[in-house]
């Protein structure tokens, strides 16, 4: 969440994007039109609209939020209030890869902080910071709903990476530096493993299994 220090609070920040950049393509516009049709009132389309804009611009500075509001025909203030409510909408520019390390609840007791600190040391930044090359941002995340495969992290609001170990983090970081996003991991149900001899899907590249969680070194 943004710090709200009064002295630093800037109500009229310089826009990041120029008016030339602040346009939606016709495909994007028709996607927006599609969102509008999904709901009886245009306001319902705000969240989808913000998602689309974040994927396009990387984050949601005020001028982008206004662009979405205008495109959907809803009040800018309404869109801005919504955008600041949700943690997945980035109001500030982040690294190319935002690593959301879960440290909540099950992950807390299964080494989530070990992974967080390992990453912090490895990338030389603290949670909440972005690496100098602009490649990585590390964030401490609340429960991501993958408690059985703790510790885990999510990459830039997308891929989940389960059962993290230091070596898995090492290869993840080096893959990401090479621009390689890890494949979707389908986490096999223990009962499937027993009764079906493994994962039930044959259309996934990468399989994971529920494993005995590591012993947490740090516990905060």
């Amino acid at each position: 969440m943004a710090t709200n220090n009064g002295a630093q609070f800037n109500r009229h920040p310089e826009p990041t994007f120029s008016s030339d950049q602040l346009v939606f393509t016709s495909d994007e516009k028709s996607a927006m039109q599609g969102y509008l049709e999904m709901y009886p009132e245009p306001e319902g389309a705000i969240m989808r609209g913000l998602w689309l804009a974040q994927e396009k611009f990387g984050f949601l500075p005020p001028e982008v939020i206004r662009l979405v509001a205008d495109e959907l025909g809803i009040p800018y203030a309404r869109a801005y209030g919504v955008a600041t409510f949700y943690t997945q909408y980035f109001k500030q520019k982040k690294g190319t890869y935002v690593l959301d390390v879960c440290t909540c609840f099950s992950c807390q007791v299964c080494g989530g902080y070990d992974i967080l600190h390992y990453l912090e040391d490895k990338l030389g930044i603290k949670a909440g910071e972005t690496s100098e090359d602009g490649l990585f941002t590390i964030q401490e995340a609340e429960c991501l709903g993958a408690c059985g495969s703790a510790p885990m992290l999510q990459i830039t609001n997308g891929r989940y990476v389960h059962n993290l170990t230091e070596s898995k983090v090492d290869s993840l970081v080096s893959d990401l530096k090479d621009g390689k996003m890890p494949a979707f991991e389908s986490v096999t149900l223990p009962q499937d493993e027993t009764e079906m001899g493994g994962n039930r899907r044959d259309d996934v590249e990468s399989l994971e299994y529920y494993k005995t969680p590591p012993v947490a070194e740090t516990f905060e």
Partner: peptide, 22 residues
């Protein structure tokens, strides 16, 4: 409908407000 990171949306009336773009 795709959420965007808020535990409270699991509460049924909050979920409705989220759908409505509030």
């Amino acid at each position: 409908h795709k959420g965007a990171g808020a535990y409270i949306c699991g509460e049924e009336t909050s979920l409705m407000n989220s759908l409505e773009g509030k």
